[in-house]
Design a binder for these strands. Structure first.
Lengths: 206, 206
DNA sequence: CCGCCTATCGGCCACCTGGCCGATGCGCCC
DNA sequence: GGGCGCATCGGCCAGGTGGCCGATAGGCGG
């Protein structure tokens, strides 16, 4: 290993940044060349330092996913490892679609993290079994249309079909059609379960 | 400051533990005497080292809240600072009721964390404004009874009242009463909104 | 050009919902 | 002992739900 793998750490929690830096310093072939605590700083640091691998927190101000997309927009070859705590289905898919090379959990043992970084640096993908499982599930569950998402947002607030119809300036009949599609696509039986699924999958921006 | 404040760090993420250790080492009057990654290790470390202040992650295997309760059971004078990322209403209240001296977010600036530790070590409480706000809200929203929680768990799965009644071996009438109480206590209008509130407040063990 | 998706609307109907009326019994605490 | 919370059960009823039948219209891609 002549040249160390140069890393960029992006996480809004300074605690996590320092922890990652401390952990990764233990590996001789890894070098943290920059840190960033928000989306803008991440983009600046990326273009300035051109890291081999970027560690990106999913949940941060400015949006980890948006940051990923912006990085990939200018540098499609960028190798990015998502770091996160929870695994909401929507997040996983959105990230993989956006071109993340790996999806890791903060709870993983440190040496596994180092291995993930090496795999990604070598051009590979690092997808844990849980994520792969989610990913295969996903193909069976189609995406909601924009209109259906609008209805879903009102539905989880406890609004009835007539109320939703009034707010969206459509009839109760149309609302019913949207709700029926939502139930079908989420694979659930009623609106209450749909609300639960929406939260579980992270379909809503809270 | 003759004697440094002796700290115990409890968090299942090694990344966070190392980050906290790195951050707190910068403060001359703070000393990390032990770490633990799960509930059992936390109890052992607490009784062995008798830290002045314990930093406790809320979300960890074994349950941060349960760990707190067990520590306080044997050492009611223990000074504990909860560390967490999200603020679900139920968590906040349960922790404060269980005797936590402070409730801090991992996103807070590092020096604020050190200050929080010093305040708690001095016998004070460290409650951020957001948490205090949640805490005052809480008094208006009473707790759910055990039976109501059972019903709520089935309700969010999309089960109807007759179905819930059958599973719990009670009549539809009784189920309706429980649901009505749930709606009233959560301050919502229907079961769909109740499901949303349950997720928002973290009432369910996922 | 025709199929498919999306969005819009209507009616019918069995079922579920939630509010309101009533009731009983149990345990706990002052 | 009497009140209070909890849990249990029943009936009545206006309204919401979700499945099923139909229909029209625009857009997009093979």
């Amino acid at each position: 290993m002549s040249q160390p793998i140069r890393l960029l750490i992006v996480d809004d929690h300074q605690i996590v940044r320092m922890g990652l830096r401390a952990l990764l310093q233990l590996e001789a072939d890894l070098e943290v060349v920059a840190e960033a605590g928000d989306s803008e700083a991440a983009l600046r640091a990326f273009h300035q330092h051109r890291p081999d691998v970027t560690l990106l927190d999913l949940r941060m101000p400015g949006g980890g996913l948006e940051t990923l997309k912006q990085i990939r927009q200018h540098s499609p070859e960028a190798r990015t490892l998502l770091l996160t705590t929870s695994e909401k289905e929507e997040d996983v898919h959105a990230c993989l679609r956006a071109g993340a090379r790996g999806y890791a959990f903060k709870s993983m043992p440190p040496n596994a993290l180092a291995n993930a970084i090496r795999v990604i640096h070598g051009g590979g993908l690092w997808i844990p079994a849980e994520v792969a499982r989610i990913d295969s599930n996903r193909k069976a569950t189609p995406e909601l249309s924009p209109r259906e998402l609008e209805v879903l947002r009102l539905l989880v607030k406890g609004l009835t079909n007539p109320e939703i119809g009034e707010l969206l300036a459509i009839s109760r009949s149309t609302t019913k059609v949207h709700v029926a599609h939502i139930l079908e696509k989420l694979g659930v039986a009623d609106r209450t379960e749909a609300a639960s699924e929406a939260f579980r999958r992270g379909l809503l921006p809270d």
